[in-house]
Design a protein around this nucleic acid. Structure first.
Lengths: 308, 308
DNA sequence: ACACACTGTTTAGAACGTAAACAGTCCTAG
DNA sequence: CTAGGACTGTTTACGTTCTAAACAGTGTGT
């Protein structure tokens, strides 16, 4: 075949891209890469990444450890494939709405994935994670900003920002979830325990501001700080878009637009941008009302017993 | 002593807080926890976290592996102490200037630390990283916002946002740095190699937006996308501060997201969503026209020599 | 029908973390 | 001042981990 594995391609990635030539001679295979990866993911979901050993995965499938090496060249490959499966594909819903709604959907889906497969966050960072699924997420992120007048560097930066927020939220929230499960405590119990520990260790003279925050009860607060952070970040993006529309760049950065700035003087563009801003405002209002309605409906539903 | 180790305190943390009662009977100690941790950090700096084994650290100090267990209860403890040393303390410079400058300094210093000790990012997340140094960073972050009218939850959220940005930047940048060192290539070389690989794998029909970004050369661009992200985030914080007069809006928490599907049956929500969709469509149209106008204007301008 | 590519298995080895037992050292209670 | 024992660094040992290499059986292409 002409499509034999590229020598530079780390083999596991080639497998992820589906460039895998199944052999035709020899006995029938009893297993498949998919089943192995599935078993490994189940195991990691249940007991964490550390519990995933070749022996454990094999025994879960009823085989000897070494049999796996007929399907996977090394454990690292298996982990990469696990990561790929856990990453999955963004839903179609991430293509609905304006750029902000899309990015918010992407953020939410990513966090959800991290919550479902927290061990992904424990996988040591390999050099180039150029897998089909991670590419799909990046594509979806860039698509979210496709209607904006931003250049591709800016778009990528923003996608990275959202991705980073999701990962960070995943790290911290998954850490809490793990502590809950390991300590067999409810969320508020562990928060209280941590708060008590902090009150003991964080003195007012060594850490005045942190101590004040503790006194204010921030570590007992049950609201999600990460959504707040994402909201502020996207506010900033929105402001940047608005500034771009008006041609203000109070934000001096070396790499961005050199020629776009000149465009602003054009009358028709200015008018078009004004209309965009109006449309954005209308959309914001509509979304606010929608959220309001959803919240009220949610409360109404919550009072009735769940149908599930 | 009354200050004997709290049974709930994971011992390693107790060590980090300096609640360590050195024994007085018995022979003089030949080593110290500090020397062990130093040696381990040096090793990790040079060859990565995976190279840090008890045997390797001990041999670097000229001792047998088991001797370390007289100073450290387990490898996890050692890793925690390594993390603590690598984290260090924020400089005094992070207390200069207004909130924005302070947060930017904190971000920069954190990224620098991650670049100097990339292995920190490989340490699996333990439940409560309540160590003196991490507390100091958090304190510095909260101090940065001490002059603002924000409440403590908001301050903490913003500090977490900046911390997350720094960590994310560290992850990606350290990944690049590692690839550079392992492959013995310069930064632009590895970027070119990755770009070539992407061009081969990312097809225009499977990943249209990502492909377009590649064509635009985003992966060859040498500018730092993370500073851009941080700038936008802080812009958003600034906007939030400017609009501090508004009341709190409640943000849905991540564990409440899943039941959104149930809400759809509500009539008012449906109507609100319809209106949102209309607004979205209007915005899309407006943007399309704006882009059209911008493109035309751009062509007109391009004919003239650029002023930059 | 033969060769041989390929299957899953067995055996083996190196490296890891750490429990347990060991001889030597030095403080402290008697 | 002396004996007990807490403490030192070391040795030995065990269980796990990943995986290379050799093995006997299976099925396909020639």
């Amino acid at each position: 075949m002409s499509e034999t594995t590229d020598p530079d391609l780390p083999r596991g990635i080639a497998l992820a891209w589906g460039i895998a030539a199944d052999p035709q001679r020899g006995p029938k295979r009893e297993m498949s890469v998919e089943r192995i990866v599935d078993a490994a993911v189940e195991l990691a979901d249940a007991e964490g990444l550390a519990a995933v050993s070749m022996a454990a995965v094999a025994s879960r499938l009823g085989y000897t450890p070494m049999s796996l090496y007929r399907y996977v060249t090394a454990k690292d490959d298996l982990v990469l494939l696990m990561q790929e499966e856990a990453t999955g594909l963004p839903s179609e819903a991430t293509r609905d709405g304006d750029w902000r709604r899309r990015l918010e959907s992407l953020y939410r889906e990513q966090v959800q994935r991290y919550m479902r497969h927290p061990w992904v966050l424990d996988v040591p960072i390999s050099g180039s994670p150029a897998t089909p699924h991670s590419a799909a997420w990046m594509d979806a992120g860039l698509h979210a900003l496709a209607d904006t007048p931003l250049d591709f560097n800016e778009r990528l930066s923003i996608v990275l920002l959202v991705t980073g927020c999701a990962r960070w939220a995943g790290i911290v929230l998954a850490g809490y979830a793990r502590a809950e499960r390991e300590g067999r405590l409810r969320g508020d119990e562990i928060a209280q325990r941590e708060d008590a520990l902090f009150r003991q260790l964080i003195t007012a003279d060594a850490y005045p501001d942190l101590r004040a925050a503790i006194e204010a009860g921030v570590f007992l607060d049950e609201s999600d700080p990460f959504s707040f952070g994402l909201d502020r970040s996207l506010d900033g993006v929105a402001a940047y878009l608005a500034a771009a529309a008006e041609g203000r760049h109070d934000v001096p950065r070396p790499w961005e637009w050199s020629d776009d700035a000149a465009i602003v003087d054009d009358k028709r563009v200015r008018e078009a941008r004004k209309r965009v801003r109006e449309a954005e405002k209308a959309l914001r209002d509509a979304r606010r009302q929608e959220r309001q309605a959803a919240r009220e409906a949610h409360e109404r539903v919550a009072r009735r017993p769940a149908s599930t």
